[in-house]
C-alpha cells in the first residue's frame, strides 16, 4: 500500500508542476486537463490514506478521458476528416471512430487557448488547432483547422464549405466502419449528396457515397482551387505567422481588445 502512496505522491507532484507550467504559458486547455487529473489523483490518495477503496465508478472512465486530451481528440478528428470542419462534426467523428469524450461546448475556448499558447512561445508545439481564414483573411466563424495543413486547405472561398463537406463525407465513407455511430453519421451526410443513396432507409453503400461525392466535387473543384490559391497567396503576402494561423483581427476584435 505504501508503494502505491509513494507513486501517487510522485504523480501529484508531477501534475502540480505541469499545471504550473501550463499556467505560465497560458495554455488553459492543458491546464484544465491536468487539473482534473490532479484532483482525481488527490482523491485516490485521500482514499488510500483513510483506508477506503476508491469508488469503482471512477475507474473505467479514467484511462480514456485522462490520457487523450481534448486537444488531441480534436486533432485526431481533423486528421481523419482532412478539411476544415465545424466543432459539431469533429465531435461526431471523434465519437464514432475514436470513442471520443469531447462535447462541443468544450471546444469554444480551444482556439483562443491555442492562439495564446502560440503567441507566448511560437511553434513550441508540433501542431496547433487553428482557424480557417475567410476572404477577408479574418478567422471564419466556427471552423477548426490544423496548422500542419497547407494554407490552401485552411482558407475558405465561397464554394469551400461545400467542397469541405464533400471531402469530409469521402473521408468518413472510406473508413468503412461498422460502428453504429459511424453508420448514422454516414447516413446523415449521404442524404445531402445527390446520388449517394438509393432512396432506401438502410445504411448507404460507402463506395457509392464516395463516388457520388467525387462526382459533385468535380463540378466545384476548378473554381474552388482557383479561389483558394488566390486567397492563400494573399494570406502569405499580408499576414504574419500568428495571423496566418489564427486569422487577422477584424475591426471589432481590435476594438474589443482595446477595451479590455
Amino acid at each position: 500500500m505504501s508503494d502505491r502512496l509513494d507513486d501517487l505522491e510522485r504523480r501529484i507532484d508531477e501534475l502540480r508542476a505541469g499545471v504550473r507550467k501550463a499556467m505560465r504559458v497560458r495554455d488553459g486547455a492543458t491546464a484544465r486537463v491536468l487539473r482534473a487529473e490532479l484532483r482525481s489523483a488527490e482523491r485516490a490518495w485521500d482514499a488510500l490514506v483513510s483506508g477506503e477503496q476508491p469508488r469503482a465508478k471512477e475507474e473505467p472512465q479514467a484511462p480514456r478521458a485522462g490520457q487523450v486530451t481534448v486537444r488531441e481528440q480534436v486533432h485526431q478528428g481533423l486528421r481523419l476528416l482532412g478539411a476544415a470542419a465545424q466543432p459539431r462534426l469533429i465531435v461526431a467523428v471523434s465519437d464514432a471512430f475514436f470513442g471520443g469524450t469531447i462535447r462541443s461546448s468544450r471546444l469554444t475556448s480551444l482556439r483562443r487557448d491555442e492562439e495564446r499558447s502560440f503567441r507566448s512561445s511560437p511553434f513550441g508545439r508540433p501542431y496547433y488547432l487553428c482557424a480557417a481564414l475567410t476572404d477577408r483573411l479574418s478567422p471564419a466563424r466556427g471552423l477548426l483547422t490544423l496548422s500542419t495543413w497547407p494554407l490552401e486547405r485552411r482558407v475558405v472561398g465561397p464554394l469551400s464549405p461545400r467542397v469541405d463537406f464533400l471531402t469530409c463525407a469521402i473521408a468518413i465513407a472510406e473508413q468503412e466502419s461498422q460502428d453504429e455511430r459511424a453508420v448514422r453519421l454516414l447516413v446523415r451526410m449521404a442524404r445531402n449528396i445527390p446520388g449517394a443513396t438509393d432512396g432506401s432507409l438502410g445504411p448507404p453503400d460507402p463506395a457509392r457515397v464516395v463516388e457520388a461525392a467525387r462526382a459533385e466535387l468535380r463540378v466545384h473543384a476548378e473554381r474552388d482551387t482557383r479561389d483558394r490559391a488566390e486567397l492563400a497567396q494573399r494570406a502569405v503576402a499580408q499576414l504574419g505567422d500568428a495571423a496566418r494561423l489564427f486569422g487577422a483581427a477584424t475591426l471589432s476584435t481590435i476594438k474589443k481588445e482595446k477595451a479590455e
Partner: peptide
C-alpha cells in the same frame, strides 16, 4: 448542383 456558393455575412464585424 454547381450553385453551392456560401457567404457568411457575419464574418465581418
Amino acid at each position: 448542383v454547381a450553385e453551392v456558393s456560401y457567404h457568411d455575412v457575419e464574418n465581418v464585424g
